[in-house]
């Protein structure tokens, strides 16, 4: 089976004249249809750059990115480029922009070009469907600033879903929201993935990723390790990824990941922990 998207030996360097900064090097990665993957790594590891390369917002300075050449057209439609649904970091959104929830979500239908400034009946039918699915139908006429962090995340998820994407790409969907909201967001994503949606996201929250995401990619300018959380989240991989002393605790079938605090031992943190390998 061909991957939906494949990165082979991909490199990216920001060209700043004499001070070119390599962000990514030798990145080999593939994502199959139906996969749910999270990219983890420290700040500056190139996570957002990797997403932007996948989305086509940036072009690699080395290597190649290919999309599945074998995709079969549905009901005789023409082969089209891979459709991406992108949910940017909430911090990058202009919350003072005068738009309501439904106006933001309908932006996802802009690809369906028509000469008219208004949206079609089909667009509105899909709007009603995704708003209900995301449980934000009652907020349709509200301004986006008036919502809670979790509701705001759902608005941008709805905008991505209404675009009928082949791949959902999320940049730090769990940052800037409380723990319960972050859990909820990941439940929504896991639910979408169960229904066949391919998802690629970045996150700083290793514990949430370990609990909810079935495929982890450790990145720090290059791919350090990738695989299932229990195989990837080892002290060795994490130390290499974060260039820091990391602690992996396995307890009751759960993975708990902590950075070792300076001046303490792990015995101070958890009595009788079972260490990961």
């Amino acid at each position: 089976m061909h991957p939906l998207i494949e990165l082979r030996n991909v490199a990216f360097t920001y060209d700043l004249g004499r001070n070119s900064v390599p962000i990514l090097q030798h990145v080999d990665l593939h994502l199959h249809a139906g996969q749910f993957a999270a990219v983890v790594g420290p700040s500056g590891a190139g996570k957002t750059t990797l997403l932007k390369l996948v989305l086509g917002m940036l072009h690699p300075t080395g290597g190649v990115i290919t999309t599945d050449p074998t995709r079969i057209p549905i009901l005789g439609e023409k082969i089209r480029p891979l459709r991406m649904g992108y949910i940017p970091q909430l911090e990058t959104v202009d919350w003072n922009f005068p738009v309501t929830v439904e106006q933001v979500v309908l932006m996802g239908r802009t690809r369906q070009y028509s000469l008219w400034p208004w949206h079609s009946k089909q667009d509105y039918a899909m709007l009603a469907q995704v708003l209900t699915e995301m449980e934000i139908a009652h907020l349709a006429k509200r301004h986006i600033r008036e919502l809670s962090g979790g509701q705001q995340q759902r608005v941008f998820l709805a905008r991505a879903l209404i675009a009928e994407p082949d791949l959902l790409v999320l940049d730090e969907p769990t940052s800037g929201v409380d723990m319960r909201t972050a859990q909820n967001v990941l439940h929504v994503l896991a639910d979408l993935n169960k229904r066949g949606m391919t998802i690629l996201m970045t996150t700083h929250d290793l514990n949430l990723a370990a609990a909810h995401v079935p495929w982890i990619v450790c990145l720090n300018k290059r791919v350090i390790a990738q695989g299932k959380p229990e195989a990837v989240f080892t002290t060795e991989n994490l130390n290499q990824t974060y260039q820091s002393d990391m602690l992996v605790i396995r307890q009751d079938g759960m993975l708990i990941i902590q950075q070792k605090p300076h001046g303490h031992t792990y015995h101070d943190l958890v009595p009788n922990p079972v260490l990961g390998h």
Binding site: G56, M57, P88, V104, G108, R111
Partner: peptide, 10 residues
């Protein structure tokens, strides 16, 4: 609203 994201959405 968001030039960069608009490009991703075609």
């Amino acid at each position: 609203f968001d030039r960069e994201v608009a490009q991703v959405y075609g």
